[in-house]
Write a protein that binds this DNA or RNA. Structure first.
Lengths: 136, 136
DNA sequence: GTAAGTACGTACCTTGTGGTAAGTGTCAAT
DNA sequence: ATTGACACTTACCACAAGGTACGTACTTAC
């Protein structure tokens, strides 16, 4: 029974990921999604309609062209983003979420909305922390 | 007192964060939560009961002592994590989620569970992407 | 004729992230 | 007597993330 330890582990992983395990590929997926710009790109793409490259760049404040391209490519590889390039002479590329991407984006949106709504609570917690440290 | 300058900025932000704005403090909060180890620490702390430092280190595979301490401190400053140090001679520190932390952790847990459950879909999307590139 | 927009790719360089290794001080166990 | 556990802290160092700047190829607008 304990002969096929390795293959059992592999089969296990194919069914479900385990983020606590350092070698599990789910770690990479998580990092693509929760990367500095990944989160923001996902919630930007969640807004209705298709999106152009430079439109996204304007929307996501502070992202460089290089980083936006890199982030979009990573999300595309993981099957979250659909890239449609129209071979016209002023280049035209449309980005949108795949069904898979829409599912993740929902979760991400839930998190980001919570942060935006509860920012004041976090900020007041921070200032209290500072005064607590001053007292000690 | 130059207090007026700070409070004006603070008042603006006190209503709601805007993650699309590069200077908004919500960006920092997001990065603490979605940092490499932040996500994993949050879902580990979400499991019932209090948690010890080295217990967390064992649970979150691959994290170094330095990074775990750093991550916990950031989450503590933001008011997500409660640190209770008992001044006994073999040091004893309990970590747990604050009510604020429990709220974020719920969202984070939703995301991570989705990733673990749907890892196979992402993985198959990746391999399809590879074969698509080979064809071109 | 010069500039700007489109969607990137590439080279270069700085900053930051994060890992390793060692130190701290006390106690329990071998 | 030495080792290990506890919960860190500090110093050091390597690599990668990410920013800047420029190039591409073509078109429209000024």
């Amino acid at each position: 029974m304990k002969a096929s330890k390795g293959s059992a582990l592999l089969a296990k992983v194919k069914q479900r990921g385990d983020l606590y395990a350092p070698v599990c590929p789910s770690r990479g997926v998580l990092e693509h999604i929760t990367s500095r710009w990944g989160v923001l790109v996902l919630i930007a793409l969640r807004e209705e309609g298709t999106h152009r490259f430079s439109e996204l760049r304007r929307k996501v404040g502070g992202v460089s062209e290089k980083m936006l391209a890199q982030t979009l490519q990573a999300l595309e590889q993981d099957g979250f983003v659909l890239r449609e390039a129209h071979p016209v002479i002023p280049p035209h590329v449309d980005y949108s979420l795949t069904p898979l991407g829409q599912e993740v984006a929902e979760h991400v949106k839930g998190l980001t909305t919570w942060i935006e709504d509860n920012l004041h609570r976090v900020l007041s917690a921070r200032t209290q922390e500072v005064s607590r440290k001053k007292a000690s």
